[in-house]
Amino acid sequence: MAHRDFCKMISRSKPGPGDGGKTGSWRVLRPILHAEKCIPVKAGKKACFNCWLYCPDCVVTKTIPPTIDLEYCKGCGICAEECPADAIDMVAEDSFSVKEK
């Protein structure tokens, strides 16, 4: 006998950026990377990448220099906290001009 199509609906979604929308607008503080202090940049090779490792939103790249996707960065500041070289500063968003924003 033909039965209904079971388990058609469960909580399963495709992963991808922006599952919760463009969260960059939530930010109060913006991470600014000072490349001259960044260990991989100074060493010219892959090194700590704590910023990439600890970012809860996966918006930091494992590149030299690391880049931060500000469309999704919520400004939590974990990267700045974890950076062993203090290469990331958290700067108030309102210090950036409206135009720049």
Binding site: C7, I10, S11, R12, S13, K14, P15, D19
Partner: peptide
């Protein structure tokens, strides 16, 4: 539906 690295998904 099952955990499949070839077809990643968010579950529950």
């Amino acid at each position: 539906h099952f955990l499949n690295p070839d077809e990643p998904g968010n579950f529950n």
